[in-house]
Amino acid sequence: MNSRRILWGALGAVVFVAVIGGAWIVSLPTAPSVAAPPAIAQDERDATIAALKPPKRQRPLIAIIGINDATETTDYLMPYGILKRADVADVVTLATRPGPMTLFPALKVEPHATVAAFDARHPDGADYVIVPAMSRDDDPEALQWIRNQSAKKAIIIGVCAGAKVVGDAGLLHGKRATTHWYSIKELRGKHPMMRYVEDRRLVVDDGVVTTTGITASMPMSLTLIEAIAGRDKARAVGRDIGLADWDARHESDEFKFTRPFAMTAIGNTAAFWAHERLGIELKEGVDEVSLALVTDAWSRTYRSQAVTFASTAGALQSRNGIRILPDKVATNWPAARLLPAIDNAKPADALDSTLGGIAARYGTRTTDFVAMQLEYPRHRSTQ
């Protein structure tokens, strides 16, 4: 289940507890610890890169799978956009069924193919399969396809709460793994033989890769590019997306359910009269990574929903070949509720700018609330 849907489900319980007694809220920590994580040892870095080398093809084939109903927006689009701009692999987006995909919490896209069509064209399977968070962890068709790809020796990469899907496919037994901070307890409970690894944004173990929360797919994608094409290529792509430095460093204690987090969820939800739909114009050639990050972040405030609009109902093609369907047909949007154009902003810069915009509109607590959901380190040098 998508991390925001998990949080929405938990919100009812939070509100109930808040109403009948505030003791639980008061017992929550007031703030997570924030400390610069230690550097990754060179031998660990080398082992990670070695374990991610392409298993089959010199130019690898990477498949990103989702279900048509509510696959997580940034988990699905960010690895695609980053890997496509590197041009070191063939990258395709897949859905379990024909038709468009409604991503969550924002955007609607047309995948390149169904899993059945992919199998017909590539009976030997992919080199890498990226598994985003999905609205359900136990979709039978998705699970069977992931198992089949693993049996064909594809490296399976569970992004964020996609680790739960990988776990339900039976691939985490005895493996070292991580996931979105909110899903750690659930994942460990369902898969007791899995060994959780803290303080790492990326964990690789015998053909299975897992990451922490949503924005971890940025360093994951760059690490994969390094494994395929070398450090210099990965650095060039990193600069292109606004991430000059990255590795697997992570401060797990920075991300947890805190009192301000709970109170922001309650307060922003309760202020229903102030909820708003914020428009962003969908343009041909838009950077799909920046668009995903911007719409995802604005749709996690519990005060706003990002909505794309265009003058026609037809799909528009992104910078790297994703066909995106507008939510609304319109030639303009009320200025007070119009989000800034993305233009040529680098994805990491677009996210930082969006968090600044959220702070200006709703306050810094809401910015922290969104960054916590995205599991976004506020230290750019350790992303």
Results as ranks from 00 to 15, higher is better:
Met263Pro: 02
Val92Pro: 02
Asp139Ser: 10
Thr366Gly: 08
Ser33Lys: 08
Gly314His: 12
Ala51Ser: 14
His112Asp: 15
Ala271Met: 12
Thr331Phe: 07
Thr96Leu: 15
Ser299Leu: 09
Asn268His: 11
Glu284Arg: 15
Ala117Asn: 09
Leu338Pro: 00
Asp75Ile: 00
Ile155Met: 04
Leu7Ala: 06
Arg378Trp: 07
Pro111Asp: 00
Ala70Pro: 01
Ala50Trp: 12
Arg4Gln: 05
Asp247Glu: 09
Thr71Gly: 07
Ile82Gln: 01
Leu107Ser: 03
Thr178Cys: 14
Leu325Asn: 03
Met1Ala: 02
Ile155Glu: 03
Ile65Asn: 05
Val26Met: 12
Ala39Asn: 13
Val294Tyr: 02
Asp245Thr: 13
Thr308Trp: 03
Asp43Ser: 12
Ala51Met: 13
Ile25Glu: 14
Trp333Cys: 07
His379Ile: 15
Asp240Met: 07
Asp138Thr: 14
Gly238Ser: 10
Gly267Thr: 09
Ala151Pro: 06
Tyr182Pro: 07
Ile65Met: 08
Lys153Gly: 00
Ala306Gly: 06
Leu224Pro: 04
Asn268Met: 12
Ala292Ile: 01
Pro54Glu: 02
Asn344Thr: 06
Asn148Tyr: 07
Arg85Cys: 01
Ile184Val: 14
Thr264Val: 07
Val17Trp: 11
Ser252Met: 09
Lys84Glu: 05
Ala348Gln: 06
Thr96Trp: 01
Trp181Gln: 03
Met263Lys: 08
Met193Glu: 12
Thr71Gln: 08
Phe104Asp: 05
Pro111Phe: 01
Thr269Trp: 09
Arg323Ala: 15
Thr269Gly: 10
Ala274Pro: 09
Ile82Tyr: 00
Thr308Val: 04
Trp333Ala: 01
Thr210Phe: 11
Pro60Met: 12
Leu187Gln: 02
Thr264Phe: 03
Asp247Lys: 12
Lys346Met: 11
Gln317Met: 14
Ala360Pro: 02
Phe255Asp: 03
Thr312Trp: 03
Leu355His: 05
Ala41Gly: 10
Arg239Asn: 10
Tyr182Lys: 06
Gln305Phe: 09
Thr354Tyr: 01
Ala47Tyr: 05
Ala359Cys: 04
Val307Asn: 03
Leu243Ser: 03
Gly21Lys: 10
Leu187Asp: 04
Arg319Gly: 00
Ala47Phe: 08
Leu224His: 03
Arg176Trp: 13
Ile130Met: 10
Gly314Ile: 00
Ile49Ala: 08
Ala154Pro: 04
Arg380Ile: 09
Glu288Met: 00
Trp246Cys: 01
Arg147Ser: 08
Ala51Asp: 07
Asp253Ala: 15
Thr331Ala: 10
Trp273Met: 11
Glu284Lys: 15
Val19Leu: 13
Gly238Val: 11
Ile65Gly: 01
His250Asp: 10
His379Asn: 14
Pro377Trp: 00
Gly99Pro: 12
Trp24Ser: 14
Ser304Cys: 12
Ser353Tyr: 10
Ser221Phe: 04
Gly81Glu: 05
Tyr302Phe: 15
Gly12Ile: 13
Ile266Ala: 09
Pro60Glu: 10
Pro100Leu: 08
Thr215Ile: 04
Thr71Leu: 00
Gly66Ser: 14
Ser150Lys: 11
Arg195Tyr: 03
His180Cys: 03
Arg337Thr: 13
Ile324Phe: 02
Lys346Arg: 15
Asp206Ala: 14
Gly314Asp: 15
Tyr80Cys: 01
Ser252Pro: 15
Arg239Trp: 08
Asp296Leu: 02
Glu186Trp: 09
Gly238Met: 00
Ala265Asn: 00
Gly363Gln: 07
Asp168His: 11
Glu284Ser: 13
Arg188Asp: 10
Asn320Cys: 12
